[in-house]
Nucleic acid binder design. Structure first.
Length: 297
DNA sequence: CTCCAGGCGTTCC
DNA sequence: GGAACGCATGGA
């Protein structure tokens, strides 16, 4: 049975116009935005609120209904369907992940189950690269604070829902602000890395659109020319910013999870085109299941 | 106080 | 080629 993409409809809740998607499957809004792939959304009173693609959007999930306010059906079709990954058949992807890793590999099986509902967002390339440079040797709440502060300080201002909002800063704005301005945002040693990335994009030494046509390995090598971009940052950028779903930064950190169960190591080659998605499931498995069970001790 | 957080560059062997 | 170390910052 083939996947039927959810169809957006205009509706109204509490007098407010919004877009509704009915009968969505394999989608958990709270997990999608809390799983560490995206740093500009926050959940409050069941509403996920943030800025992406230069626009403010509020998202509320009620069972298999998904409500998007601050947008229109036309804009959903143009931007948010792909951004949210609602154009993809995650039932099939998850089956593929389990098959490639082996259904008898209990870690992956449990991870897919634990991470059920997570989708890989198709985020802006520059925002993804910059955010994951900031992520290094840092924790998610502080990454979110720095990204938020930087957007407020250097991003283009616009109004939404009667509030001032800020787009993610352009490379030009960051380069113009300079390292001292980034230091004031408490970026620490990452200030020079973000500046180097911005400078390379501005002067054309790095063409982020050129990565679209590269293989995963070519994209890795290309992005790693930026000072402060190693394998981990490059892989996360390729996965979340370019949707190159085979990206798998296993050498850097995910092995930690697997070694708990496979002290002798497991074969990480030929994991298929969704290895990056499996990687994110493992990250969430640790974030939501392992960490929580350790907290209970 | 120390340890850690979605790492990376440098230095040294 | 890989191990050890420093790096800014803030929370636990």
């Amino acid at each position: 049975m083939s996947y039927v993409k959810p169809k957006p409809e205009q509706t109204t809740i509490n007098g407010e116009k919004c877009v509704v998607l009915k009968h969505i499957t394999d989608f958990s809004a709270s997990r999608v935005f809390d799983c560490g792939q995206c740093f500009r959304f926050n959940e409050k009173d069941g509403v996920i609120d943030g800025v992406a693609m230069g626009k403010r959007i509020k998202i509320k999930q009620d069972g298999d209904n998904l409500y998007l306010s601050g947008t229109t059906v036309a804009e959903y079709n143009e931007i948010w369907e792909k951004y949210l990954g609602l154009d993809e058949d995650y039932g099939a992807i998850n089956a593929d992940v389990c098959e490639k890793f082996g259904v008898y590999n209990s870690v992956i099986f449990d991870a897919v189950k634990a991470a059920s509902g997570i989708r890989i967002l198709r985020q802006d390339k520059w925002e993804t690269l910059c955010s994951f440079i900031i992520s290094q040797n840092n924790n998610i709440p502080r990454i979110k604070k720095i990204v938020s502060d930087m957007s407020r300080a250097l991003g283009e201002e616009f109004e939404s829902f009667g509030e001032e909002c800020y787009a993610f800063p352009t490379p030009d704005a960051i380069l113009a602000a300079g390292i001292p301005a980034l230091n004031e945002l408490k970026m620490g040693f990452r200030s020079k890395y973000v500046t180097d990335a911005a400078a390379r994009v501005v002067d054309g030494r790095v063409d982020l659109d050129a990565v679209d046509n590269m293989t995963f390995e070519e994209g890795e090598e290309y992005l790693m020319q930026i000072c402060g971009v190693g394998k981990k940052v490059a892989d996360c950028t390729l996965l979340f910013g370019y949707h190159k779903t085979e990206a798998f930064p296993v050498d850097v950190w995910i092995r930690r999870v697997l070694e708990k169960y496979y002290p002798d190591g497991i074969d990480m080659t030929n994991l298929g085109k969704y290895a990056g998605i499996a990687q994110q499931y493992l990250f969430c498995y640790e974030r939501y299941i392992i960490s929580e069970s350790e907290n209970e001790k």
